[in-house]
Simulated scan of single mutants.
Amino acid sequence: MPVTQHIRIDHGSAVQLAASAARRTALDQQLAGALPDRAAVLASELAGNIVKHARQGSLYIQPLPLRAGVEVLAVDRGPGMADPEQCLADGYTTTGTLGSGLGAVRRIADEFTLRTRPGAGTLVSARLGDPARHSPAPTPAVGAVCVPAAGESECGDAWGIAEIDGVRTAIVVDGLGHGAPAAEAAGLAVRCFHRDPQLPLPQLLKTMNRALRRSRGAAVTLVRLAPDGVEHCSVGNVRAQIVAPGAVRTRFGGQPGVVGWNMPEPRVQRIAPEPGTIVLLHTDGVDTRWAHDPSPFLTGLPAALLAGALVHGHRRTRDDATALAIGQARRDT
């Protein structure tokens, strides 16, 4: 399961730790040649930027969604950038260094997304894949972060996504409890999902219900994004909403129950698509109060950054936390 490595950048020594984690993730993803070293440079430059300029910053390092590769997501609550393009220019510096950090990151990454707000911080997603195995930059409208509870080595949350003929189907799972038993239940659900993600959503849930009968059980939410609309099917307390710039437009309601134990007959909710909206799913490790009065900056973030901003800013550390943000697939896929 694609679990995120969370590295707090609170000291200069964290820069090397982040670089090593990014290189290891790239090797695990079987990136060839110089690509693991380039992944390490992405992490090193982004971590170093936080050390020099920001506060309360972290790197989230993980495999890419939908293709082999590595993502380095940097989030901080620092002063932000008054002029992002100037900060990306080679040679620009406010600390007397060479001034090649963010510019180097943008050159090396095959997907680069940056948003900043003066006084509120900066978010950067830098993604690197293998051009010999996949065309570059096919998935900018997907972002995810999945981290275990504080003190746990295994994560009881999991997520997955499949894209077939321009239709995206996604799952977020919250295994009951924490640790290995919860991780086992969540993993079973995601493996069932990937066997045939094109099945009708209620049938997918029924297949998972059978597979999880000897497990802890789980809360499961499924969504399907097609050109003609969004489908939602959910049992348990994994939240789902549609986010647009400036607002949370729609909150889907999940059915009470536990997949694997006392699952009700699944039902599907459908809504028409709206241009520019993002479907956002998250487990209860993310405090739901974020949606009561969200800032326009948060709701206006692209999918590649929204999940990271949500987990970084609204995580409950005593629980596993997962957020998955999905936009519509490109029409030419």
Results as ranks from 00 to 15, higher is better:
C87T: 13
V15M: 05
A39R: 03
P65C: 08
D76F: 07
L42W: 08
Q30A: 13
H11Q: 13
P84N: 05
A47D: 03
I50H: 04
Q86R: 13
D37V: 08
L46Q: 10
A32R: 15
L59D: 03
S20N: 13
V51N: 09
K52G: 07
L64V: 03
A82N: 09
N49R: 02
A26C: 08
H11F: 03
P65V: 10
A34Q: 15
S44H: 12
Y60K: 08
A21T: 11
I50E: 05
A54T: 07
K52R: 15
A47K: 06
A32L: 10
I9C: 02
R8T: 14
D10M: 06
V41N: 13
Q30N: 04
G12V: 14
L64M: 13
L73C: 01
Q30K: 08
G12M: 08
R55M: 11
M81F: 12
E45C: 05
L59G: 02
L59F: 03
A82P: 00
L27T: 10
A26W: 02
D28L: 07
A21Q: 11
Q62W: 00
D10Y: 06
I50A: 07
A40K: 05
V15Q: 06
A26I: 02
P65T: 02
V70D: 00
D37F: 10
V70M: 06
P36A: 10
H11Y: 11
R67G: 00
H11N: 14
I9D: 02
R8S: 15
A22W: 01
E45W: 01
G80P: 03
P36W: 04
H11S: 14
A32E: 15
S44P: 06
Q29H: 01
M81P: 04
R8W: 15
L59A: 05
E45S: 02
V51P: 06
A32C: 09
G78A: 03
G33D: 14
P79A: 08
D83N: 09
R55G: 15
Q86K: 14
L35P: 00
A21F: 04
D83E: 11
S44M: 09
E45A: 04
A34C: 11
R77C: 13
G78R: 04
R38C: 11
Q30P: 00
R55T: 14
G78F: 01
S44Q: 11
K52T: 12
Q62H: 13
L42V: 12
G80M: 00
V15L: 11
A54C: 13
L17M: 10
A68Q: 14
Q56Y: 06
S58I: 01
L42T: 09
R8D: 14
A47I: 02
A82W: 06
V75M: 13
H11I: 05
D37S: 14
A74S: 15
Q62S: 11
V70S: 01
V41Q: 14
L46S: 01
Y60A: 13
P79G: 06
L35G: 05
Q16D: 15
A47T: 09
A14N: 07
P79I: 02
A39I: 00
M81W: 12
A40I: 02
L17V: 14
P84V: 03
A82L: 10
H53I: 02
V72M: 08
D37Y: 04
S20D: 15
G80L: 04
R38D: 15
I50N: 08
A22E: 03
P36E: 04
T25R: 12
A74H: 02
L64Y: 00
I61K: 05
D37K: 12
Q30F: 09
Q62A: 09
H11L: 12
L27G: 01
G48H: 06
